[in-house]
Write a protein that binds this DNA or RNA. Structure first.
Length: 589
RNA sequence: GCCUCCAUAGCUCAGCUGGAUAGAGCACCGGUUUUCUAAACCGUAGGUCAUAGGUUCGAAUCCUAUUGGGGGUACCA
């Protein structure tokens, strides 16, 4: 559409002897209720033409009609100049640009980006909140890959700390030797069970202490279980063999469980980092900061940074006893990750409850003069809430990831069976299809919403399979594939030179926007933009499909080839786009 | 208290860097299958874009304040 901008600039120069900036030219798609495809908003030009909007629009319209071959007509509504572009222009665009092999691919841009996501605690199974994180992280990584980046997906596993010791302690006390093998419970669920047991027993102790006259705060601190857990953490840090062995065993169970969950969700990682290896990092960075005068030491020996000039607070970066806090570790880990990969950008996919933390972290790294600090980005996403409020692992008010996936697949199975279209599938093919549809529904449901918005999930209302959903897009793809196969489609340019139907034209315009939509989604780190585009495309295709007479029976070979080309490209775009969302589109469903 | 994010149809969400009469899906009501997959298509209905100001030729969009909700807030991660 660049030629319209150029020609409009020419028009203004010719008509009003003004050289105006390109930003003055405001082009948009023509609204459906008016004639034309491209609309020039003339209000910004009025101050140069010194004429009324209508007069200006008409003058520019006349000029464009006379001087630009592709423009076949125009009309003016208030300050809007609606331009009709020749069908031949759209057909050429379609045949020469959109049908090129590289239409769906972007050249490598030579930049490296790291996406850190998932980052689970090893004391409980994944729940719906983690699912959002995983799908978002995976999808953003794929999005950046599709936009030309070299991408590293990493998972920083929180495998140590007091919360891990809680489930270890509870298992030791009440586990009675239970293992995933002995009870048949998935490893992460088994460990999670003891985390809950700890909490329950801990609360009992608190209640008892409170009856003895202690305050809530005192009781929390003095509860024997908590003291024991803290003892255990000290032992762990001291390298106590028994504790380490137990820790290895239970973490091993969790990893086996996570492996399954990750596989079911279809997410993967290029590298795992473990906090048990990184929790001591960052002290060098603290020294560096002190040497550079970025940090300062208080009388008690604790190290701080003063960010009040930046509108933030004073922040502790090292405790008086020399032990790390969360941010100490993150400073060190950030350095290590950069040393490992030398990436240009680094994305942290972490919930919005940590907005402040990352603001501080990035600011500190910048103040330390890290050249790579400007490439850091916190992809903050909203929590997934239930109608009853926040999900809490300890209280058992969570939607379990494994259960949810299983439910979705089961629903897909029931719906598919009811429709009875795939009775000739093998059992394995059926199972694969149910998985793809169930997960397609779940993934689309979570990804179509802008990341930063909080998400409400009502377990009593099942996720839809109709309308603006994953299965709708999958269905559209399957339908096209079936059509192409019936028509024995062969890829080739068509010689069609006739008139386009309105919907055909809309299809070409919408298809042509794919690269820009992709790139915009990548720049915004928002799979939601892509998801919404794909939905729009599928929806428009279904309208097109319904409107045109059966293509398979079309007698005009050029028209037939042309329409099949539209179908084929639509299927390709849907497939490429959904792949980025982690959704598989079936050939039949 | 302070910081920050959010608020659009009964529900779940779109609405890109300000542009024409604010759009989808679900749910509701009605229609479409001797024609390429009806998980589809077409139609009816549904709105004071939280509220009040401001900037602008023009505001759901930008600014300020207020209300409501989420999150954070110096030794948890």
């Amino acid at each position: 559409m660049n030629f319209i901008i150029t020609e409009t600039l020419n028009a203004i120069k010719h008509l009003y002897q003004e050289d105006v900036a390109e930003s003055v030219i405001n082009i948009q798609e023509t609204r459906k209720e008016f004639e034309g495809q491209i609309t020039l908003v003339v209000f910004p030009i009025v101050r140069f033409s010194k004429k009324s909007p209508e007069e200006t629009a008409n003058a520019i319209g006349e000029y464009l009609l006379a001087n630009v071959a592709e423009i076949t007509a125009f009309n003016v509504v208030k300050g809007f100049l609606n331009l009709s572009i020749a069908d031949s222009y759209w057909l050429n665009l379609f045949n020469n640009e959109l049908l090129k092999d590289d239409f769906l691919t972007v050249k490598p841009n030579g930049k490296k980006v790291m996406v850190e996501y998932s980052s689970p605690n090893t004391n409980k199974p994944l729940h719906l909140g983690h699912v959002r994180n995983n799908l978002l992280g995976y999808s953003v990584a794929e999005l950046l890959k599709a936009d030309g980046f070299e991408v590293f997906k990493v998972n920083l596993v929180n495998d140590r700390g007091i919360h891990i010791c809680k489930s270890m302690l509870a298992w030791e006390k009440w586990g009675d030797g239970e293992t995933p093998e002995s009870s048949g419970l998935k490893g992460d669920h088994l460990v999670g069970k003891y985390y809950v047991i700890f909490d329950k027993e801990y609360k009992k102790e608190i209640d008892t202490l409170k009856l003895d006259g202690q305050t809530e705060e005192e009781a929390k601190k003095n509860a024997p279980l908590m003291k024991e857990a803290q003892q255990m953490l000290l032992k762990w840090e001291a390298g106590d063999e028994g504790v380490i062995a137990l820790w290895r065993k239970m973490n091993g169970w969790v990893y086996e469980g996570f492996e399954i969950s990750y596989k079911n969700l279809g997410v993967d990682f290029d590298k795992y980092y473990y906090e048990s290896n990184t929790y001591l990092l960052g002290k060098d960075t603290v020294d560096e900061g002190l040497a550079k005068g970025v940090f300062f030491k208080k009388e008690d020996g604790s190290v701080w940074i003063d960010l009040t000039a930046d509108g933030l607070d004073q922040k502790l970066v090292l405790r008086a006893d020399g032990t790390s806090v969360y941010i100490t570790q993150d400073l060190g880990t950030a350095q290590m990750k950069y040393d490992d990969f030398h990436m240009d950008q680094s994305i942290y996919v972490v919930g919005n409850e940590q907005d402040y933390h990352f603001k501080v972290l990035f600011l500190i790294l910048e103040k330390l003069g890290k050249s790579w600090a400007k490439g850091l980005y916190h992809l903050s996403y909203g929590m997934v809430d239930l109608p009853s409020g926040k999900m809490k692992s300890r209280e058992g008010t969570v939607v379990d990831a494994d259960d949810l996936v299983a439910e979705m697949v089961e629903t897909a199975k029931q719906k598919t069976e009811t429709l009875g279209k795939i009775n000739d599938f093998s059992e394995a093919e059926k199972a694969e299809l149910y998985t793809n549809i169930g997960l397609g529904a779940l993934k689309y449901f979570l990804l179509k919403v802008e990341p930063k918005k909080r998400l409400l999930f009502d377990p009593s209302e099942s996720i839809d399979f109709q309308g603006n959903t994953g299965p709708f897009i999958q269905y559209t793809h399957a339908r096209i594939k079936s059509l192409l196969s019936k028509a024995q489609y062969q890829a080739a340019k068509s010689m069609e030179q006739g008139a386009l139907t309105a919907t055909e034209l809309d299809m070409i315009m919408l298809l042509s926007k794919y690269p820009a939509e992709l790139s915009n989604a990548a720049k915004s780190y928002s799979p939601a933009f892509l998801a919404n585009y794909l939905y729009e495309l599928a929806k428009l295709f279904n309208k097109f499909y319904h409107e045109v007479p059966p293509i398979v029976k079309e007698e005009n070979a050029n028209v037939k080839q042309h329409r099949l080309n539209i179908c084929s490209l639509t299927a390709d775009v849907l497939k490429a786009g959904t792949k980025i969302l982690g959704i598989n589109v079936p050939e039949r469903m």
